[in-house]
Amino acid sequence: MSDSAPRPAAESSGTELRVRYAGIGDEAGASLATQLAAIEQLNWTSIELRTLDGVPVAAVSDDEFERVAATIAARGLAVTCLASGIGNWSRPVTADFAPDVAELDVLARRCHRLGARYIRVMSYTAGGLDEREWGRRARWRLGELAERAEQAGVTLVHENCSGWAACHAERMLELAAQHPGLALLFDIGNGVAYGYRALTVLAEIVDHVAHVHVKDARGDKAEPVYTPAGAGEAEVAQCLRLLLDHGFSGTWSIEPHIAVRPHEGLAADTAHRGAHAPHEGFVACGRALERLVVEDVLPTLPGWSAVPGGLRGAGAR
């Protein structure tokens, strides 16, 4: 790893590298109870929070949030990341900036209460602006937010989803290099949905990736079909192997999109039932990730081993 491209600080302690499995809870169900039950069924110890009963985690009332935090703590689970709406597909760069600042302030406080470190953001849609002005405004906004996050003791993780830097490795690297309060979140399945090869982009940004979303897909950006890890065309095993080969230490969080896709208006309470019931599909995707790692990733990486809830390794190759 290059001296000029420092990795974000590892989530594990000491010299031992560790990867924790987690999942975005509302992909398993709307209620906190269902989300926690799915994580526990997988025998995992970490969860990522996006919505609770359909309400974004930043918009939950203080009293309800305190109940959520107490419940998670009582179950002995860790929260690895909080999703935000900052810069996402619903917020063009021409929209009012004040709600983004206010949301960050709420989520930073809630991160501290939960012991979470990361807040997921994106980099704004263009809102009709030309490329140059779009980039100028997106960079300024993310710079302001990253400085605020650093002061609050949390880290923004920029996802390769919608926005100015969504599909461009050089833009992601620019953001990460210029702002200590911002690192990169890499979603493996987004390459299929947005029309690029995930492995190619990951190879360019891997040393700045702090958090990972795991999904798989086949097809193209016109009509992606989401699948369990290893059943699609996103080269999930190769991406995970590359991360480990570069000393990644942190969380691999499943976001299956099998039954729940917020950007399409498909939520847990409206998703198909039967074979596509959110809870069952979420657990099946978690098991698929575990199998893929054991069968296709670890055999080429001596020193790494599967343990309950994640991976343990003696060091980077």
Rank of each mutant, 00 (worst) to 15 (best):
P56V: 02
F97A: 10
L17V: 06
L17S: 13
G54M: 11
A314T: 14
R110W: 01
G25S: 12
E147R: 13
Q35T: 03
A166W: 06
V60D: 05
A37M: 08
I258P: 02
W44L: 08
R287N: 09
A59M: 08
E103H: 06
V283H: 07
A37P: 02
E150W: 07
E223P: 00
A9C: 05
C81Q: 14
H112P: 00
E223Q: 11
G309F: 05
I24A: 09
V157F: 10
V307K: 04
A98R: 10
A78R: 15
I39H: 06
G76F: 07
A74G: 04
T200P: 00
L244D: 14
D62E: 15
V297R: 09
F65Q: 01
A126R: 12
V214L: 11
L175P: 07
G232A: 06
R218H: 15
S249F: 01
D220V: 09
A229D: 15
G54V: 05
R75W: 11
A5W: 10
E27C: 13
S31Y: 05
T34E: 15
V293A: 02
E40R: 15
A284I: 00
R241Q: 12
V154K: 11
W304Y: 11
C161N: 08
V106M: 10
V154A: 06
L77A: 00
E174Q: 15
K221V: 07
V293D: 02
P256E: 15
F65L: 06
G25R: 05
A288Q: 13
R120A: 02
T251Y: 07
S249L: 02
P228E: 07
A284R: 12
E150D: 13
V121G: 08
E233K: 00
H208L: 04
F248E: 12
V154L: 10
L298W: 01
R50A: 03
A183H: 11
I258S: 14
N43M: 01
D3N: 07
R109W: 00
A73W: 01
A222K: 13
A203T: 05
D63H: 13
C239V: 08
R261C: 00
H263D: 14
A193K: 09
L240D: 09
R291G: 07
V121H: 13
A30P: 10
T45F: 02
C239L: 14
R197V: 15
A210I: 03
W304F: 12
E48N: 14
A203E: 15
L36F: 04
K215A: 12
P262A: 07
S162Q: 08
D216N: 12
P278Q: 11
A237I: 05
G310I: 10
V192H: 03
T200F: 02
G181D: 11
P262D: 12
R75D: 13
H179Y: 14
H168L: 12
S31L: 11
V93E: 03
T155G: 00
A149N: 04
A37D: 15
H246M: 04
G128H: 05
V225D: 06
V157D: 04
A288L: 06
D105A: 15
S13R: 15
N88C: 03
G128R: 09
A271Q: 13
K221R: 12
L142V: 10
L185T: 02
G127P: 03
A69L: 06
